[in-house]
Every structure is written in C-alpha cells, then in structure tokens.
Amino acid sequence: MADHIDMANEVAEAEAARGIAAAQSANHPVGIEGECDQCGDHFTRLVKDHLGYRCGYCRDGRRKPR
C-alpha cells in the first residue's frame, strides 16, 4: 500500500508532466535576428509586439546582463 509520500510524488510527477506538455504545445512567436527597437542592441531573436521588434529583456522589463 502506498503511503502519503508516494501519493504526493505521484501527484507531483503528474503535475510536472502536464506542465511540460502545456509548454511544448504553446504557440511561441517566431523571432528574427536584428537590432532591438527599444534598446538598440543586436540579438539573434527579436519578437514583434505593439512597440515593434524587441528583445526578451525589453519585452519583459528586465535589465540586460553586462
């Protein structure tokens, strides 16, 4: 008979599998290479949004590592 820890591990594994499946099936926008319209730095992947082609840092409001 399974104890509480075994049941919790099964739930955690099932939840992780659902999360991975959802991420794999998500529709991620295709990016292009070029200069970010906001910061001007060159990136291998820019995605177009309402402010133009921007890098992930600018889209997410994060600071770029230097």
Rank of each mutant, 00 (worst) to 15 (best):
residue 4 H to V: 08
residue 54 R to T: 00
residue 29 P to G: 05
residue 13 E to L: 07
residue 50 H to R: 12
residue 6 D to K: 07
residue 11 V to I: 11
residue 32 I to Q: 09
residue 7 M to N: 08
residue 38 Q to F: 15
residue 13 E to N: 10
residue 50 H to C: 12
residue 28 H to Q: 04
residue 22 A to R: 04
residue 2 A to C: 08
residue 1 M to P: 15
residue 7 M to A: 14
residue 6 D to S: 07
residue 57 Y to P: 01
residue 19 G to Q: 13
residue 28 H to L: 10
residue 44 T to W: 11
residue 44 T to H: 14
residue 36 C to T: 04
residue 25 S to T: 06
residue 35 E to A: 10
residue 56 G to M: 04
residue 30 V to R: 14
residue 25 S to W: 03
residue 13 E to R: 11
residue 5 I to Y: 00
residue 11 V to R: 11
residue 24 Q to I: 02
residue 2 A to L: 14
residue 8 A to D: 03
residue 7 M to W: 10
residue 19 G to K: 15
residue 40 G to H: 14
residue 49 D to C: 03
residue 25 S to Y: 02
residue 9 N to P: 06
residue 4 H to K: 13
residue 53 Y to W: 15
residue 9 N to Q: 14
residue 9 N to V: 11
residue 40 G to D: 03
residue 11 V to K: 12
residue 42 H to W: 04
residue 14 A to V: 03
residue 48 K to V: 01
residue 27 N to R: 13
residue 16 A to Q: 04
residue 66 R to K: 15
residue 45 R to Q: 08
residue 47 V to S: 04
residue 66 R to Q: 10
residue 5 I to S: 01
residue 28 H to K: 08
residue 6 D to H: 06
residue 27 N to K: 13
residue 20 I to E: 09
residue 37 D to W: 06
residue 17 A to V: 09
residue 41 D to Y: 15
residue 56 G to F: 02
residue 8 A to W: 03
residue 50 H to N: 11
residue 49 D to Y: 05
residue 39 C to H: 11
residue 24 Q to G: 09
residue 15 E to R: 02
residue 53 Y to I: 00
